[in-house]
Computed example of a mutant assay.
Amino acid sequence: MTSPARIDTHHHIVPPLYRDWLLSQGETAGGLPVPTWDVDTDLAFMDSQGIQAAVLSVSTPGTHLGDDTEARTWARKVNDYAAEIVKDRPGRYGFFATLPLPDVDGALEEAAYALDQLGADGIILLANHRGTYLGDPSFEPLMAELGRRGTTVFVHPAELPGPLVPGVPPFAADFLLDTTRAAMNLVLSGTTTRHPDTTFILSHGGGFLPYAAHRISLTLEGYQQITGVESVMHRETILAELRRFYFDTALTANPDTLPTLLTFADPTRITFGSDFPYATPEISAYFTHQLDAYPLDNHQRTAIDHRNAEALFPRLAR
Rank of each mutant, 00 (worst) to 15 (best):
H12K: 04
H64I: 10
A82H: 13
T198Q: 03
P141S: 05
D174W: 10
F200A: 04
D42I: 15
D266L: 11
R244V: 06
A111I: 13
P102M: 08
D80L: 13
R269K: 15
A127I: 07
E110Y: 05
T198N: 01
T280H: 04
A212N: 09
F264H: 03
V153D: 09
A127G: 01
Q49W: 14
Y246T: 12
T227P: 12
N185A: 07
T193L: 09
H289G: 14
L220D: 01
P259S: 10
P35F: 03
L17S: 14
P16K: 02
P141E: 03
R130A: 04
A285F: 02
P137E: 00
S284H: 01
D8Y: 07
G135S: 02
I201N: 14
E84D: 14
L126I: 11
T199D: 11
A127H: 01
G150H: 00
A285R: 03
P314N: 07
I238L: 03
Q300H: 11
P157K: 05
I51A: 11
P196S: 00
G205I: 13
A182H: 06
V155F: 00
A311Q: 11
Q49R: 14
D248F: 15
F276G: 07
L43N: 07
V232R: 01
A285W: 08
G228N: 00
I51N: 13
G273M: 07
L296P: 12
L65Y: 11
L22C: 08
F264Y: 02
T257K: 10
P35K: 06
R6M: 11
A250C: 15
R181L: 02
T288G: 05
G31I: 02
R181Y: 00
A172E: 01
M143S: 08
T199R: 13
G131W: 04
